[in-house]
């Protein structure tokens, strides 16, 4: 009997500790997600990425910390002033986090879409010399992300963005691209309706879709 009670106590302690670590993880994630919402400068975004990197080293089986670290660094890359020597290291670091997320969670549409987003960032650094190679790579990556999950609004939206660039380049109409943008907006609305309090999954990208809708698809 004594043995049993000890076993029960140990089990209770373990579950208590697991609960505590889950709670700590969620708390830390929500805090950094909040920081990410208010971060605008590349410096702030780098700090946010540091925060997610710290969570990643604590929660090695979770893909979201690395995912957000990569996203914050990619956004820092997009928003940095300066040339390739400033931006490339940020995208390189973003790629490393994205690869880690992909290893933890293979064939995850969100991670694949983020990898495409990073490729778009690298392309934007020097479109003249990287355009040919990277635009087809980005296109292919977004295609794969959509294939993995047709309900992923970010994948659909960014595929639309690439289609739009392609259509402009070849002087074609934006119908196909706008179709994708509209589809993504519907998916964003669905996502927002379904989101629960304390959700940690990605929800970003709606503003980009709305921007495209406003500028090109009237």
């Amino acid at each position: 009997m004594k043995k049993y009670s000890l076993a029960i106590i140990v089990m209770m302690l373990i579950s208590l500790m697991t609960y505590a670590s889950n709670e700590a993880y969620e708390k830390a994630m929500l805090k950094e997600l909040q920081n990410m919402k208010t971060a605008t400068s590349p410096e702030d975004l780098k700090k946010v990425a540091n925060g997610f990197a710290r969570i990643a080293q604590m929660a090695e089986e979770e893909w979201l910390p690395d995912y957000y670290a990569a996203l914050a660094l990619a956004n820092a890359g997009f928003r940095s002033e300066g040339g390739a020597n400033v931006k490339d290291p940020l995208f390189d670091q973003a790629k490393k986090h994205a690869e880690k997320a992909a290893k933890i969670s293979p064939n995850n549409s969100e991670v694949v879409a983020l990898q495409g987003f990073i490729t778009m960032g690298e392309l934007a650094v020097d479109p003249a010399s990287r355009g040919q190679h990277l635009s087809s790579l980005a296109m292919q990556t977004f295609g794969k992300a959509v294939e993995l999950n047709r309900q992923n609004p970010r994948a659909v939206m960014m595929l639309g963005q690439m289609e739009m660039g392609m259509a402009q380049f070849f002087g074609q109409g934006p119908e196909k691209a706008c179709g994708l943008v509209d589809a993504s907006l519907a998916l964003f609305a669905k996502e927002a309706a379904e989101a629960k309090e304390g959700n940690l999954n990605p929800t970003w990208g709606k503003a980009m879709a709305e921007e495209m809708k406003k500028n090109t698809c009237k």
Binding site: A24, A28, E43, K46, K47, N50, G51, A53, R54, I55, Q57, M58
Partner: peptide, 19 residues
């Protein structure tokens, strides 16, 4: 060096260096 990740290994505790 700005933006250095400073943290206690194995904990959630950390910060980043300023500009």
């Amino acid at each position: 060096i700005p933006g250095v990740n400073v943290y206690l290994k194995g904990t959630y505790t950390g910060t980043s260096s300023e500009i």
